[in-house]
């Protein structure tokens, strides 16, 4: 079920545009933020509100790499391996995360806590190697810093 807060946010976002369908991508991302993924119900609701057939909403989901049709881990590790990060060990950070979490690219741990993804440039090049956990940036990474982060996330839910 979509919350009333989310539905009223949908109304505010749609009102920003002369063409309602402009709101599709923001609404999908905001729905995902609340639900953890984009459900069938969210697709139907968004399509109805912006007055397009649901298939056009599904088309967008297939295009944008941050949008997921299925639940992923509570903490999504998105490790950059693009050039600036690669030169300073981004691939080693990815391999380390993979070993520590026991999962590969676009996989989720069986307890639903962690997902891992190799991503393209995050715009954190001066803090390379870098990653995002959900929307939070973690930069100047070392394997030790990754280990600490995983422990802190397990213990407290959020870490620096």
């Amino acid at each position: 079920m979509l919350s009333d807060d989310l539905k009223s946010m949908f109304d505010r976002v749609i009102a920003r545009y002369p063409l309602k369908r402009s709101a599709i991508v923001p609404l999908l991302l905001f729905a995902q933020d609340e639900l953890g993924y984009i459900s069938d119900e969210a697709i139907e609701e968004i399509a109805r509100r912006v007055e397009v057939p649901p298939i056009e909403v599904v088309e967008d989901i297939g295009y944008y790499s941050m949008l997921h049709r299925h639940p992923i881990g509570k903490y999504n590790f998105q490790v950059c391996t693009n050039v600036s990060c690669q030169l300073l060990g981004g691939e080693e950070i990815l391999a380390h995360c993979s070993k520590r979490l026991g999962i590969g690219h676009k996989q989720t741990t069986s307890d639903g806590q962690f997902s891992l993804e190799e991503v393209e440039c995050l715009g954190a090049c001066c803090g390379a190697p870098a990653m995002q956990v959900n929307y939070d940036f973690y930069e100047n990474l070392t394997p030790e810093r990754v280990d600490r982060l995983i422990e802190e996330l397990k213990a407290n839910g959020r870490a620096r």
Partner: peptide
């Protein structure tokens, strides 16, 4: 003035792809 979010696509930095994305289409 308002903000508008993308959702992960390098191509949307190209100006005409960005316009399509802003209209709710694939970029």
């Amino acid at each position: 003035l308002c903000t508008h979010t993308g959702a992960g696509a390098y191509e949307c930095g190209e100006e005409t792809a960005l316009l399509n994305s802003l209209e709710g289409l694939r970029g």
